[in-house]
Structures are given as structure tokens and as C-alpha cells.
Computed example of a mutant assay.
Amino acid sequence: MKRILIAAFAVAAVGGVALQAAAWGNTGHRLIGVAAVRGLPAEMPAFLRTPGAASEVGELSREPDRTKGGGQPHDRERDTAHFIDLDDTAHVMNAAGPSIDALPRLKSEYDAALIAAGLDVDDAGYLPYAIQDGYQQLVRDFATWRVLNAAEARESDPGKRAWYREDRLRREALILRDMGYLGHYVGDGSQPHHTTIHYNGWNRDTPNPEGFTTSRQTHGAFEGAFTARVARLDAVEAAMAAPRLDGFDLRARVPAYLKTTLAEVLPFYRLEKAGGFVESDARGGAFVTARLAAGASELRDLYILAWRDSADDSIGWPAVKVAEVEAGTADPWLAMYGED
């Protein structure tokens, strides 16, 4: 519950803009989504490699923040997806919590482990599971699109071909939406405050030997107004890493990504103490650019990997293999349209 309460109270008026301590602000999430899509290679479907698709994913990357406030259980099930509170040794909340490197397979098992350790499920957050779930959904989306696209190209019956086309277009809209949702959580995972118990000023219940700020305005001021002032798409794109696509293991990749962000918590607080996040200091701008570029790089890679994974998937009911439909050796009509 503490995250939600702090988000409610840590709202600062800076230049007339409300800053919520809940996620990257609008600017950060937009830039991560746009940069990731603009970085997609030619192997991806053509409908994704357009300025319109990049813009759409950028806007939809803000959606998990925009849908807050629907009531319960909607908010409780979604609000804690944006973060995971790790201590300085990468354990959830404290040493009694699970290590980020040994998370249970299921979120329900994760919740049970937290409760057994005497920790509050809502305080801990479940960002790793939100990223994994979003990735797996996108694989299913891409698998469905592959089948519909191949079937439309081969179908000789005009009625069936028209339905395949309509369903392909529906799926393309869903893909953009789901790319946006995945983009939001991957973006949250690049913001150091979303990976730490020091998420809004240094945690006052822990030692603070370097005298870091404990201000409850820290989170919102950094990712909101400051990021909006200094972040630029060309700088983010220039700072993006080369794709890392070999040896992919989703359950290992997500914790490794979040641990990389966790390692930036101490540099953030040291830079804040040194005055690096005032308007005229280039150090803060470089920090923002590096973090947005890390999010955009990871998101681009996950989009590509989801596309590749979808080629080996089976989809529909009764299930058909994507590879067989694309090879022209299986008819997917019943799997896609339905037997009833």
C-alpha cells in the first residue's frame, strides 16, 4: 500500500505540470517506445516499421499509467506491476525476501514466498512478472498474425480471404497495444527508482552513511519535469546498445536487466547530492539519456525475440503450427475461425 499512498502525496507542481511518483513521465515512456520501434530490423513485419507504428507504440506505452483509478480489484492488481523493491543485495524488500536471481516461476508462488517471509505483497511489487507476461502475450500475438497473414495470401475462397484480412488488421491493432504495454513495464525497469527500496528518497529505515536526500519529491521531480526538459529522441537513439539476441532465456534475461538498473541507484543518489539534477547540469541529462536508452535497447530486443519465438509457436483451437501454415502444409481455418 505504501507505494500508492506515496504516489498520492508525492505530487509536486513544477511549471504547472503534475508529477506522479509512479513511473517514467509521459516523455520518458514515449521516447522509449518510439526509439525501440524505430530500431526494429527488416525481419519484422512491415506494418511495424513505419513512423505511424512508432508513434502509436510511444503513445500506448503510457497506457498502464493512464488507466489507473478504476477501483478495486483493478488498481491493486495493476499498480504493483510497475516496480519491484529490491534491497542493496538484490533481495525483495530485505534479506528475508527472495533474491531477484531465484524468483518463483509463478506470481502466486512469489506472493506466497513474500507472505511466508513476513513481507507485504503490495509493498514489494512484481515488475519481473509483468515484463515476462507482456513478452509471452506478444509472442502469441505475433504467432496469430503469422498464421493470418500466410492464410490470407494463399486462400482462394473470397469470403475466407476477406475474413483473414479483417482479423489480421484486428491483430495488428492488438499487437501495437500489447507492444505499448510491454514497453511501459520494460521502461519502468530502466528507471532506478522502480527497482529499489530507495524509491523516493533514501529509505529512512536503512543506514544512510553518505547523507543522501530523503525528500519525497525525489522520484517525481527526476522522471517528470527534469526528464521532460532534457530528454531528446536523437540522443536516446544514439546511446542505444547493439542488439543482444543470442542465448536468450526470458527467466534469466529479465532479472539481469533489472539488476543492471538496480546498480544505478547509488550513482543516481550520488549525482543528486552533487547537484547533477539542476537544469543547467549536463551530468543529469546524460544520466537520463543513458537510462532511457537502456530501456529502449532492451525493449527493441524483446520485440525482435518475441517475433522470432513466434515462428516456433502453435496457435488457435484446434492448434496449428505456425511453421506449417507459413509453409503451406496446414489449413488454419478451423483454428482461426472456430469449429462452432
Rank of each mutant, 00 (worst) to 15 (best):
A7Y: 09
A12R: 15
A12Y: 08
G15M: 00
A22V: 14
W24H: 14
A42G: 13
E43V: 09
E43L: 05
L48G: 04
P51H: 00
E56I: 01
G58V: 07
S61I: 01
S61A: 05
R66N: 14
K68H: 11
K68Q: 15
G69E: 07
G70M: 10
G70D: 11
G71L: 09
G71R: 11
D75G: 07
E77M: 01
F83P: 02
I84S: 07
I84M: 09
D85Y: 15
D87C: 10
T89E: 13
H91D: 00
H91Q: 07
V92N: 07
R105M: 12
K107R: 15
S108H: 07
A112N: 04
A112C: 06
A112S: 13
L114I: 00
A117D: 03
Y129L: 03
A130G: 12
Q132K: 14
G134A: 00
Y135T: 09
D141R: 15
V147Q: 03
D157L: 00
G159T: 13
W163K: 05
W163G: 00
Y164V: 01
R165Q: 14
L169Q: 10
R170G: 04
A173Q: 08
L176F: 06
S190P: 03
Q191E: 09
T196P: 01
H198D: 12
Y199V: 10
N200W: 02
E210G: 12
G211K: 15
F212M: 15
R216Y: 05
H219G: 12
H219W: 08
G224V: 00
F226H: 08
F226Q: 01
A231C: 05
R232E: 15
E237Q: 14
A239K: 01
M240T: 10
L245I: 06
D246N: 11
G247A: 12
F248V: 03
V254W: 09
P255S: 07
P255V: 00
A256I: 08
Y257H: 11
K259D: 11
L262N: 05
A263M: 10
E264H: 09
V265E: 02
P267A: 10
F268P: 03
R270I: 01
E272D: 09
K273M: 03
F277W: 05
E279D: 15
D281Q: 14
R283P: 01
G285F: 02
A290H: 04
R291C: 11
A296H: 04
D301M: 08
L305I: 08
D309L: 08
A311Q: 09
D313M: 10
V320E: 08
K321C: 12
V322Q: 00
A323P: 14
V325R: 06
V325N: 10
V325T: 12
D331H: 02
P332I: 00
L334W: 06
M336A: 06
G338C: 09
